[in-house]
């Protein structure tokens, strides 16, 4: 009984590392822009579609798929930034959110025209293998995704908190007008943030899909749901929160699947989100961030 539970937790953490990768992108965009990018999941989906297209039409080379997936996601990210977040002024938060939803629809249409069939194969990064740790097991591709996720968290944290560019991004996020007086170019900060987020998205899409070995147009919707729920659980604007939220979501889903059924698994993630929104609306680390923001703005 307890062995099953621990095994479910391991499986959940492995799958949840994919959710964490998606949530990192969502939380970074929201942290910088203070706006939700609903087209993030579909951008990753279309980027991965381009990767699959290169696999089917150019060469059976996994590195080419990785490169095209990341590059295409970056190009789509720039398109979203230019059309949706740069064109729509800072004051019109709702307009940019609605336009990001419109772009979502557009990206799905493009994906369906690029590859019209419902499901396509996505190449595996390396041969799937089962690693054994005493009575417990973990799939090698998920373990690899977990390690990559942790590495990305560390790199991103160091970039945001230890570099001059990271300082400029945080200054812009904290006070866009004041950052302009410091010589920070807000447009460049936005552009750079979208490139970073798109690279993370490209890596996330590639790893998740290569573990699943297939891609459908619904991946955009799936990525948006999982990424948003994980971000909300962990706390909006927190990198560590995004990772923790993804892992918790994975563990809850894995146990719901084991002790219930596949339908319960999806319901459990929404139940978890609603429960969190009622008990702790800011998420696990979001409450701390809210208090931090409140204290910081009290005397300004």
């Amino acid at each position: 009984m307890i062995t099953d539970f621990v095994q479910n937790c391991i499986d959940g953490i492995m799958v949840g590392s994919g959710y964490s990768l998606l949530a990192l992108g969502f939380t970074l965009v929201f942290g910088v822009l203070k706006r939700l990018n609903l087209s993030y999941g579909p951008s990753i989906m279309l980027g991965a579609y381009v990767g699959t297209w290169s696999f089917l039409n150019i060469a059976d080379n996994i590195w080419l798929v990785l490169l095209t997936t990341i590059c295409a996601t970056v190009v789509i990210g720039i398109y979203v930034e230019q059309l949706c977040f740069r064109a729509v002024s800072k004051e019109t938060t709702i307009a940019s959110m609605v336009s990001s939803f419109a772009i979502w629809m557009q990206l799905e249409e493009i994906a369906l025209h690029l590859l019209p069939e419902r499901t396509y194969p996505f190449p595996a990064f390396f041969d799937s293998g089962l690693l054994e740790f005493g009575p417990f097991t973990a799939r090698s591709e998920y373990l690899f995704m977990f390690v990559v996720m942790l590495l990305l968290l560390l790199i991103l944290h160091a970039f945001i908190y230890r570099t001059r560019i990271g300082l400029a991004i945080r200054a812009y996020s904290d006070h866009p007008s004041a950052s302009a007086y410091m010589g920070i170019d807000g447009s460049s900060v936005l552009f750079l943030a979208f490139i970073i987020v798109s690279i993370i998205g490209g890596i996330a899409g590639f790893l998740i899909l290569s573990a699943d070995s297939q891609i459908t147009p619904f991946f955009g919707l799936w990525a948006t749901f999982k990424g948003l729920i994980a971000m909300m659980l962990g706390g909006i604007g927190s990198l560590s929160g995004a990772v923790l939220g993804g892992l918790i979501l994975g563990v809850i889903e894995a146990n719901a699947f084991w002790y219930g059924d596949p339908v319960i698994r999806d319901i459990s993630s929404f139940m978890l989100l609603f429960t969190m929104l009622i008990i702790r609306p800011g998420g696990i680390f979001g409450h701390k961030i809210e208090i931090h923001q409140k204290i910081a703005s009290e005397r300004v």
């Binding site: 904290d174 006070h175 910081a296 300004v300």
Partner: peptide, 16 residues
Amino acid sequence: IFPQMTIAENLDTGAL
């Protein structure tokens, strides 16, 4: 000033 950043970080932004 940048309210959510520390004083040291605010000074760093001046040197950007």
